[in-house]
């Protein structure tokens, strides 16, 4: 594994952070900015607002046009303006970013979204986008349009309802910041099994551990008392990969129901990384999958690598 070419080029990564409001999105935006900066990724921030019933679309559009004449900005743009200010505060060393001013007049509608024009010629790798409609549908469209590698989403109150849709339908890796506390010291918990997605999640884990300096643990769970060659081999390969990059790793092998064991082990002080399920989507819809169930049952930040 150590001699293989990396599965992705960290230099060309694109991350997308979904913000919902000034009140609740600060930790999400902070983590999004941190992750994007340590990966040197370009960073999109999207606000998904509610869409008015199409029946009264004319009336709403007419009102918004008139609000523009009164210099009252499109609802949602104030959240993006706040996001830009926060990103500036989070990267005080970024002089180019500091120079950028938010101008609500510099927005234009394209591809069913409103994009705030920021001066790309100054090396700005930030994108501010406003969308209206159903959350998963709009995030999916944004990810497909801009080829984002990772979507960073805040923990939601109705996560059980959203978990299925987010994991099944977003075509990128997903980082869900459940009960994320930026001041807390997390340990990285990598769930390792013999699935294909484990290789990629090991790479993500190694990069995050390197950049953030968090301690790393790997957890392999078997339903029976015996660990087959596949599981053992995957755990060994993961350890070898971390060793090759000089990252210390603690290995754990536990038996029991995988999801229950992940959740109990993760407690509230781990940052979980796991691979996306390779199950058929219809089976996932009907019976769920390990990532879906883990997300539903746990209260820690989870990165699901696709």
């Amino acid at each position: 594994m150590t001699k293989k070419k990396p599965l992705f080029d960290p230099k060309s990564l694109k991350f997308l952070t979904a913000v919902s409001s000034v009140e609740y999105s600060k930790p999400t935006l902070k983590m999004g900015a941190l992750i994007a900066s340590v990966f040197d990724a370009s960073h999109g921030v999207v606000y998904v607002g509610e869409r008015a019933s199409e029946f009264h679309g004319s009336s709403v559009n007419l009102t918004r046009t008139n609000l523009d004449n009164w210099n009252i900005i499109h609802p949602g743009l104030e959240v993006l303006e706040w996001a830009l200010q926060e990103l500036k505060k989070l990267s005080p060393e970024n002089n180019e970013l500091a120079k950028i001013q938010f101008n609500p007049d510099h927005v234009y509608e394209e591809d069913g979204r409103v994009r705030v024009m920021l001066p790309e010629e100054k090396g700005c790798r930030i994108e501010l986008v406003l969308r209206e409609g159903e959350l998963v549908d709009q995030l999916r469209k944004e990810i497909q349009l801009e080829n984002y590698d990772l979507a960073i989403i805040g923990g939601s109150q109705n996560k059980r309802h959203l978990a299925h849709s987010l994991i099944q339908y977003l075509p990128s890796s997903i980082f869900i910041l459940q009960k994320f506390n930026p001041r807390k010291k997390y340990k990285l918990l990598l769930l390792v099994d013999d699935s294909i997605a484990t290789n990629k999640s090991v790479e993500w884990g190694a990069l995050i551990a390197e950049k953030l300096g968090w301690p790393v643990r790997t957890l392999t769970v078997s339903k029976t008392k015996r660990f087959g060659a596949g599981y053992q081999g995957a755990a060994d390969k993961a350890k070898a990969y971390f060793d090759s990059r000089g990252i210390e790793v603690e290995q754990f092998f536990l038996t029991g129901d995988p999801v229950r064991t992940f959740v109990d082990f993760a407690g509230d002080n781990h940052f979980v990384i796991m691979g996306a399920s390779t199950l058929n989507p219809v089976k996932q819809l009907l019976f769920g999958s390990k990532p879906i169930k883990t997300l539903e049952q746990s209260d820690v930040p989870i990165l699901i690598v696709r």
């Binding site: 019933s53 009264h56 709403v60 918004r64």
Partner: peptide, 9 residues
């Protein structure tokens, strides 16, 4: 009218 004020957020 209700839709419009609601869409103000």
């Amino acid at each position: 009218a209700c839709t419009i004020i609601y869409s103000s957020g």
